[in-house]
């Protein structure tokens, strides 16, 4: 509730505390310093390539991190997110890969800490049965309603199609 559902990332927003600015010259200097600081931050983030041994390892890493949800910006995977936690988790996943752990082990490791929520694909288990098969149930219910409605209608049509008593059968014209 508190953080608001629209901006979950706000919880991780960095404080932008700048002191009082007195003179225009100081303002310019502060702006330049801020710009430089920002550039250096952006730079240090940009040049932090993980030392993959080969292309296959890189592909595996990208495939795996795309299946894992960032807990901060929850609409993003840890492969996409800029949140600090996502960066930490990417490094963690990478180090575990280096240590020779399988994708399944790494996922279990994260699920043990952050629950199934960390997986983009909910696993098929007792408490997700409704999630997986609920749509099918609704589809079947809808189909049942349609079948019953059609049967009832055709039965009613069958009754009215009966020639009323006293009328010649030859008058029974096809309405279709």
């Amino acid at each position: 509730m508190f953080f608001g559902s629209s901006a979950p990332c706000a919880r991780f927003s960095l404080a932008t505390a700048t002191g009082p600015v007195r003179a225009p010259g100081a303002l310019l200097r502060v702006l330049l310093a801020a710009l430089l600081a920002f550039a250096s931050v952006a730079h240090s983030q940009a040049i932090q390539p993980l030392p993959f041994k080969n292309h296959a390892e890189k592909v595996r890493f990208q495939h795996l991190t795309r299946q894992l949800r960032c807990l901060v910006c929850q609409d993003e995977s840890i492969a996409d997110s800029d949140a600090e936690l996502a960066r930490d988790l990417r490094l963690d996943v990478f180090q575990q890969m280096q240590a020779g752990r399988s994708d399944k082990q790494i996922k279990q490791y994260l699920v043990a800490r952050y629950s199934d929520f960390v997986l983009y694909d909910p696993p098929l288990q007792a408490n997700t049965l409704l999630l997986w098969f609920g749509p099918l149930l609704i589809l079947l219910a809808g189909a049942a309603v349609v079948v019953i409605a059609i049967r009832r209608r055709s039965r009613d049509a069958g009754i009215t199609a009966q020639p009323p008593a006293g009328q010649a059968p030859t008058d029974n014209e096809d309405d279709w």
Partner: peptide
């Protein structure tokens, strides 16, 4: 439900 629960809250398995 949403006024009483934070939909972004991740329940801890710990």
């Amino acid at each position: 439900w949403n006024t009483r629960h934070d939909p972004n809250e991740v329940p801890s398995p710990l």
